[in-house]
Design a protein around this nucleic acid. Structure first.
Lengths: 194, 194
DNA sequence: GTCTATATTTGGATAGAC
DNA sequence: GTCTATCCAAATATAGAC
């Protein structure tokens, strides 16, 4: 697995080849088939491992800061740091870029586990009322990550904007919540309106 | 070129092959070398063409709406619509995902042309004072695009958030500008402070 | 589990006739 | 400009001995 990650970081995720992996572990190519049924099986194992690493990463940072504002900032930073730490891993987990590969149900379940953990964390801030709010936050996070990786790899150009964007989102969600409480019929219509 | 785009949309950008392109235009593979020096040369031509299309797309929409708020919204929509209309083109122009390919200086110049056109449009709103503001806006735009393409291809899940995010950015930049004018030493330090 | 040997396919690219 | 023929390299994958 470690060799596979190294090769992917070296030759690009799509450039992963069994020959390179075998060479890096000092084996012949056919020996790899004792461990993986196919090349896509390696991608799948990487996908699962990457999600496990993300889960661990989130839990390691789960100090749960005091205020909702700080908690939101922390959420942005967790995503940003994890993704930018390994662009290839980010590409495998969050972009759909490898021609033939689709994660197995078992591996995909891990991805859902990550999503759910995030959903919980966001809910604890009391800021996120509807699914669309979560979509908004993921878009903002991923946008920062994507620009950082694509246009300033290894730099800090978008890292310096993480706190600003988090606060911007905080203000937006807070204002939205206030508005919704002032006249509940507008945003959360139907249910309470009747 | 059209055949190349079709193949890329069909087999994935990284899955582009000369055999498929040749087959689609009813030629033999070696005949393609009368038009392109190599496979990467095809990618390069696609890169240039994609940027040309973006330039045309921007100009077609350049009605320049009245208020700054509307102008910002329009800018978000231009990016969103163009990118989501063709995910493969988006991948080629804005992600760095193909192992061996780097755009030629001539093609890259077109990409810079697009960037500059955007910079002009944003400057006309009077909202964007420093480069970091532009980085912020590109991050927000790309985030919406990326999530829409990766997690709801063909759908409208993040499309429905475009106006909200644009307005959120507008409010943020407006507030920031007001703050900067109230005490000019904080944000635009050095120059005016001395 | 690991190897050698091999099958099989496919890829990009060139030579040279027409 | 387009073709046939060919080259060469690399890829994934399997068979079967040790």
């Amino acid at each position: 697995m470690a060799a596979a990650w190294e090769v992917a970081r070296d030759k690009g995720l799509a450039g992963l080849s069994l020959s390179d992996v075998a060479a890096r572990v000092g084996m012949q190519v056919p020996s790899l088939y004792s461990y993986f049924a196919s090349k896509n099986d390696i991608y799948d194992a990487m996908f699962a491992q990457g999600n496990d690493q993300f889960l661990q990463f989130i839990r390691d940072r789960a100090v749960l800061p005091r205020s909702a504002r700080e908690r939101l900032r922390a959420g942005f930073w967790v995503t940003f740091d994890f993704c930018t730490a390994d662009p290839v891993r980010y590409q495998l987990l969050f972009q759909r870029t490898i021609p033939g590969f689709t994660p197995s149900p078992a591996s995909y379940a891990k991805a859902l586990e990550v999503l759910d953990l995030f959903r919980q964390g966001l809910a604890s801030t009391g800021l996120v009322s509807e699914p669309a709010d979560q979509d908004l936050l993921t878009a903002l996070s991923i946008g920062l990550v994507d620009q950082q990786i694509s246009n300033d790899p290894g730099g800090r150009r978008w890292a310096s904007l993480v706190d600003d964007v988090a606060d911007m989102a905080y203000d937006y969600l807070l204002k939205k919540r206030r508005r919704a409480r002032a006249r509940p019929s507008t945003r959360s219509r139907n249910k309470e309106a009747q």
